[in-house]
Amino acid sequence: MSDHGHDHPHAPVTSGDEPPAAARARALEDLLVEKRVVRHEDVRQMIDWLVSRTPADGARLVARGWLDPEFEERLLADARAAALELGLDPGPSPRVVAVENTEAVHHLVVCTLCSCYPRALLGPPPDWYKSLPYRSRAVSDPRGVLSEFGVELDDDVELRVLDSTADIRYLVIPRRPPGTEGLSEEELAALVTRDSMIGVAQPLATAPAG
């Protein structure tokens, strides 16, 4: 490494069996730092921010929308503004668009090209979301995929798969489970799972134990 203007140690924190992809990413990061495109600290801060996000933020948006139809309208019109309204961090770009599951329509989200995902509001995507089988089958056999996740859609429900190929990230607003009248926003949010906001599951019917 060249002598450049910051003062943290450079011994890489790796073990002997580092996977090739990790070694490649580290080499790339070192090069970008050497060329002063990024600083190690920027990369670390971005990773910290990404892994600090959780589906709890998305769940709050959904629960508020279930309780307040006018908020849900605003969420559907501009998810970023709706997140800011609740004091949530919608992240920098890209733009998030919320879509609503109804009696007649169910949405399922995938990124066939890579792993685009509304990370600011849902946290890091699950491993299966990034896997080739999910990415290929979610578009070509989505009803089969849903069935493997335990979701059987009624015959009269139209299935809409959203392939987030570009600058938009999609967040599914699942249907509010029956029998949840009278629950608080916090109790409702506990029913809204990560998977239900990807569209591979329905929200929980009752609060999780504990």
């Binding site: 070509s140 056999d141 139209e158 798969v161 959203l162 392939d163 190929t165």
Partner: peptide, 29 residues
């Protein structure tokens, strides 16, 4: 400009298993 474009699944996959009106939607420039 970027558009969300919806396609009938049956027009995209010859052997699609599902409803006639199932759609696959993607963002296309």
């Amino acid at each position: 400009a970027l558009y969300l474009v919806g396609f009938a699944q049956r027009d995209v996959w010859r052997d699609y298993r599902g409803r006639e009106d199932d759609r696959i939607c993607a963002d296309v420039y």
